[in-house]
Amino acid sequence: MRIGSAKESYIADEALFATRTQWVWFALLLASLVLFPFVSNLYWLYLACLVSINVISATGLNILTGFTGQVSLGHAAFMGVGAYTVAWLDNNAQTPFYLNLLAAAGVTTAVGLVAGLPSLRVKGLYLAIATIAASFILQFVFINWESVTRGTRGINIEPPEIMGIVLDNPDTFYWMVVPIMVVMVLLAANLFRTRVGRAFIAIRDRDISASVLGISLPAYKLMSFAIASFYAGIAGGLYAYFMGSINPESFPLLMSIFFLAAIIVGGMGTILGGILGAIFMTLTPEVLRYGVDLASPFIDEPGAVLSPVRTIVFGALIVGFLLFEPHGLAEIWRRIRRFFHLWPFRT
């Protein structure tokens, strides 16, 4: 039972992993990520890659919505921008994949800055609605800017190549996507040790006070959009490489709602929340499938029931978590941890 950990310097206080125990757990996590591909089948690896991409995207959205308080329903459209950038570069330029990903992030950041301009004028729900409008406008561009996006016919993307190995299978793709995910998540966690991160939190909690304290609202709000778009761009680019083909209908408003639900379920305003939420929301359909299979002796058309049930469960998760556990899975996790820290005392 850990009673307390005394810090002797500001740097120590700020550290991401304060105690040796935390370092050990982190090392174990990394080790299990490394070992995972050797004990799982192709389908689990496919899920793992999908989860990683979603974690990156959810972390980005969390920075914007959870930490800076700017609700965005345009996240999927930003991923689309990243995906189309990668797709265009892949088909028209001979640049290596990591440059493509960085370019995707760059283009998406620029688009995000423009789409974030309404945040300088409106906030809260109005901003959310403005982001819905932005996502529809982007969708229109995807469909009609045929010379770049090939419109509704969609674009195919060749799998990336590292040192001669083609990453066209989840078991090889895993080795690229997971390190990127770990790095992006650590970067996000670190962001909130810096001035910028604290400014974001201040804006979320009370933006008028933040501006009184000298935080330039326009600059930091746009920065938040930019950073979130960066993450969305990387996630979108990875998605394009992973799926191998994208079309305008790949990034609907429903996907933005999915990510927003993921951070609500996971816990807005915590890095862990983004991770847990993405994992939970990506794996829930799988669990549902098992459930429907189990219940299949009792229902006469189990196949016909899965899709609507998924929609209902999705909505019920959002409503349920908001009603009963607004701080999400991260809070549940913290409660469990507290229980074990303080055991045998009661929490």
């Binding site: 609700v71 959310a128 899709s307 609507p308 209902i312 909505g315 019920a316 607004p326």
Partner: peptide, 27 residues
């Protein structure tokens, strides 16, 4: 029950409700 909560949360709740309604109708 959501009275007094952050209006953005209530907004998200209505999105969730919408999803439940659509799923039920489809079912």
């Amino acid at each position: 029950p959501m009275l007094g909560e952050n209006p953005i949360s209530v907004f998200m709740v209505t999105i969730g409700l919408g999803s439940i309604l659509v799923g039920t109708v489809e079912l």
